[in-house]
């Protein structure tokens, strides 16, 4: 299956959907900082993989798919939920990449340039996630 870019999807998203993501993303980053201050980096670090914007993202996908079906006069509720489920399955694959990201930062940030390590870890996240997605698709 080919990976495609569809820039028109950005127009489907309303400004308040972007605002919700910005606010939730900002809130969890701020809260993670507060938890780290209060409880230490051991507990605070857990929240670096907290699914803060996941409910908002899944709801948005469900809504878009439902609207697409209903535009053609079809019932879109089931299709909407299935689309959100497929997106969540993708996030599960991405979370293995996220684990690799955390591992790379943990093992290498002390002895190397921390900014290069963050960049390399992001590349590792993308590579591992795409590889798992590719293997899953081929299976």
């Amino acid at each position: 299956m080919r990976i495609k870019f569809d820039v028109s999807a950005l127009r489907q998203t309303k400004w308040h959907d972007y605002a919700v993501r910005f606010i939730f993303g900002g809130l969890i980053t701020a809260v993670a900082g507060i938890i780290t201050k209060q409880c230490g980096p051991g507990i605070g670090g857990l929240f670096l993989a907290f699914p803060a914007i996941f409910p908002a993202g899944a709801t948005l996908i469900e809504k878009h798919e439902k609207q697409k079906k209903e535009k053609h006069g079809l019932e879109g509720t089931t299709r909407g939920t299935e689309a959100a489920s497929i997106d969540a399955a993708g996030a599960a694959m991405g979370s293995i990449g996220l684990l690799a990201f955390a591992f790379v930062v943990w093992r290498f940030v002390t002895h190397h340039n921390p900014w290069l390590v963050l960049a390399a870890a992001t590349l590792v996240w993308l590579t591992v996630s795409v590889l798992i997605w590719d293997i899953r698709k081929a299976a």
């Binding site: 299956m1 990976i3 495609k4 870019f5 569809d6 820039v7 999807a9 950005l10 993303g25 969890i28 980053t29 993670a32 900082g33 929240f47 670096l48 993989a49 907290f50 699914p51 803060a52 914007i53 996941f54 993202g57 899944a58 996908i61 689309a83 497929i86 997106d87 969540a88 399955a89 993708g90 996030a91 599960a92 694959m93 991405g94 979370s95 990449g97 996220l98 990201f101 955390a102 930062v105 963050l118 870890a121 992001t122 996240w125 996630s129 795409v130 997605w133 899953r136 698709k137």
Partner: peptide, 21 residues
């Protein structure tokens, strides 16, 4: 902007909060 949905879903687990924090 990415398709298919399962591939776009990978970005639901992007290290966004981690990079910022």
């Amino acid at each position: 902007v990415l398709k298919p949905k399962s591939f776009a879903g990978l970005f639901g687990a992007a290290p966004s909060v981690a990079l910022a924090t």
